[in-house]
Simulated scan of single mutants.
Amino acid sequence: MSTTECKIASSVVPDELCLNALPRFLGRHYMEGESLVYDWAARLCRSYEGGHWNFFTLSNDGFYMTPSNMGRVHVRWHMNGYGDMMGADAFGITVTLFALCHLAEKTLDDLIIGRYHRLREFASQHVEAANILRAID
């Protein structure tokens, strides 16, 4: 059975382990990757004002981040005409996908490219998959 046929599970990373999450998933690019997540959050959501983020690991060895201080938000991306509401979890997945894509294009690092594809696979199973996939298209 392929991983696309299996449900991918997500688990929140406890706060005391968050410092190790990005180095684990992004290797030497972890500082730039974190900065890109926050930058993309601001680009995609006018109401984003920073704050605490939660980290999630995926059973397929992927990860993503979500803002912990947001509910449903309006997300807009002018480059593809996307504009709609989504929950904080879907927003975090979308932002992390944009950041990973940006970082993968910049670094051409197979580790980062793999993380993007693992998260996209999870995104396709998410309850808000249609919105996430439209936003990143």
Rank of each mutant, 00 (worst) to 15 (best):
residue 89 D to C: 06
residue 104 A to D: 09
residue 85 M to N: 09
residue 61 D to A: 12
residue 106 K to M: 05
residue 22 L to G: 07
residue 101 C to R: 15
residue 84 D to I: 03
residue 58 L to Y: 12
residue 5 E to I: 11
residue 117 H to P: 02
residue 120 R to N: 12
residue 28 R to A: 13
residue 15 D to M: 10
residue 75 V to C: 06
residue 117 H to L: 14
residue 125 Q to V: 05
residue 69 N to E: 09
residue 91 F to E: 00
residue 33 G to T: 04
residue 20 N to I: 10
residue 99 A to D: 04
residue 134 R to M: 11
residue 8 I to W: 13
residue 97 L to I: 05
residue 134 R to E: 11
residue 80 N to R: 02
residue 93 I to Q: 04
residue 71 G to E: 14
residue 58 L to A: 07
residue 88 A to K: 05
residue 62 G to H: 05
residue 72 R to I: 06
residue 31 M to C: 07
residue 46 R to M: 06
residue 49 E to L: 10
residue 99 A to E: 02
residue 21 A to V: 10
residue 47 S to P: 00
residue 56 F to N: 09
residue 2 S to L: 13
residue 90 A to H: 04
residue 65 M to C: 13
residue 82 Y to D: 01
residue 19 L to D: 15
residue 13 V to H: 06
residue 127 V to I: 11
residue 42 A to W: 03
residue 59 S to H: 05
residue 103 L to S: 04
residue 89 D to G: 00
residue 114 G to T: 13
residue 80 N to H: 01
residue 65 M to E: 05
residue 72 R to F: 09
residue 53 W to R: 08
residue 16 E to R: 13
residue 91 F to V: 02
residue 60 N to T: 00
residue 132 I to L: 03
residue 92 G to D: 01
residue 123 A to V: 08
residue 112 I to S: 02
residue 67 P to H: 08
residue 75 V to E: 00
residue 78 H to M: 10
residue 134 R to C: 11
residue 93 I to H: 03
residue 86 M to N: 02
residue 8 I to C: 08
residue 132 I to C: 03
residue 44 L to T: 00
residue 104 A to T: 09
residue 127 V to H: 14
residue 130 A to V: 12
residue 5 E to H: 09
residue 107 T to V: 02
residue 9 A to W: 13
residue 105 E to Y: 04
residue 3 T to W: 15
residue 125 Q to K: 00
residue 6 C to Q: 15
residue 124 S to L: 05
residue 31 M to V: 12
residue 97 L to Y: 00
residue 117 H to Y: 14
residue 43 R to Q: 13
residue 88 A to M: 04
residue 63 F to L: 02
residue 30 Y to H: 15
residue 28 R to C: 10
residue 79 M to Y: 11
residue 97 L to C: 05
residue 123 A to I: 07
residue 37 V to I: 14
residue 29 H to A: 12
residue 75 V to L: 12
residue 22 L to D: 10
residue 72 R to L: 03
residue 111 L to H: 07
residue 20 N to M: 15
residue 53 W to V: 14
residue 2 S to I: 07
